[in-house]
C-alpha cells in the first residue's frame, strides 16, 4: 500500500492543528497514519528525541512522508497515541528503582486497556520501545493485577511460566541446537567450573 493510500487515523480531533499548534505524522508498520500533537509526543522519550533531531517545521510535516515506526502495528499505535493525547502535559514519573512501585490505574487507562492480552502484550512492548514511562507502569500494573488471588498452580497457567524441569529441557534443547564446536567449548567451560577452576576470562 502506498503512503498516499494509507488510512489516516486522527487520534484526537482536538490535536489537529486548527491554530498554529505543532503536530507530527507517524506511520505504523501496517501503513496506518496518525497525527499526534507535539505535547502528546513529549510523553515518549524516544519520539520526542526523534522529532527534536529531525527539526521539522509545520510545512515539513505536511510535505515529507510520515515518520515510520516500523515495529509497531496500527492497532497498538492507536492505543499508544490515544494514551499520550489524554495524558499530554502531565509530568513524567522518574523511576528511582524503589520497591514497591505504587501505581494506580486511572479510569481512562483502565478503559483503554480493556483489551485482550495479546494486544496488552504489544502495548507493553510499544511503551517500552517508545519509552513512555507512565504507560509502561500502568500496563505492567494491569499484568501484575492478574496475579490477584491466584494459587501457585493458577498463576503458572496465567503467566505461562515453565517449571524448573521445563527450563532445564529448554536449555538442553538450545544447547543441542548450537554449533557443535560452540557446544564443546561450553561443555569444557562447565567442566572447568565443576572442577573449581577459573573461568576462561
Amino acid at each position: 500500500m502506498s503512503v498516499e493510500n494509507a488510512p489516516v487515523v486522527d487520534v484526537d480531533e482536538a490535536a489537529i492543528p486548527v491554530e498554529k499548534k505543532m503536530y507530527y505524522r507517524f506511520e505504523s508498520n501496517d501503513k496506518k497514519e496518525f497525527r499526534v500533537s507535539e505535547l502528546a509526543i513529549q510523553q515518549s522519550e524516544t519520539l520526542n528525541r526523534l522529532v527534536e533531531a529531525m527539526g521539522y517545521t509545520s510545512e515539513d510535516v505536511e510535505n515529507k512522508p510520515a515518520i515510520a515506526i516500523e515495529n509497531i502495528d496500527g492497532k497498538t499505535l492507536k492505543l499508544v497515541f490515544q494514551w499520550c493525547e489524554h495524558h499530554k502535559g502531565e509530568a513524567i514519573p522518574v523511576d528511582d528503582g524503589s520497591v514497591p512501585k505504587i501505581v494506580e490505574i486511572p479510569e481512562f487507562d483502565a478503559k483503554l486497556m480493556d483489551i485482550d492480552n495479546g494486544l496488552l502484550f504489544k502495548l507493553i512492548w510499544a511503551a517500552d520501545y517508545l519509552n513512555i514511562v507512565q504507560l509502561l507502569n500502568v500496563s505492567c500494573k494491569k499484568v501484575a493485577n492478574m496475579a490477584q488471588g491466584k494459587t501457585p498452580a493458577q498463576l503458572r497457567r496465567v503467566y505461562l511460566l515453565p517449571s524448573d524441569e521445563e527450563d532445564e529441557a529448554a536449555k538442553r534443547a538450545a544447547q543441542e541446537a548450537q554449533d557443535p564446536r560452540a557446544r564443546e567449548v561450553e561443555e569444557e567451560f562447565e567442566e572447568r567450573k565443576r572442577q573449581g577452576g577459573n573461568s576462561f576470562f
Binding site: I102, F121, D128, C140, Y159
Partner: peptide
Amino acid sequence: APRFPLTELPVPCAKNVLQTMSPLQLVV
C-alpha cells in the same frame, strides 16, 4: 482465566510487573 506470556516481555518490563506486585503475589 486469561493467559499472559510474562517471560516473553523484555526483562525491564517483566521486572516492572514484579515491582508493582503485592508481597503476597510475589511469594506465590
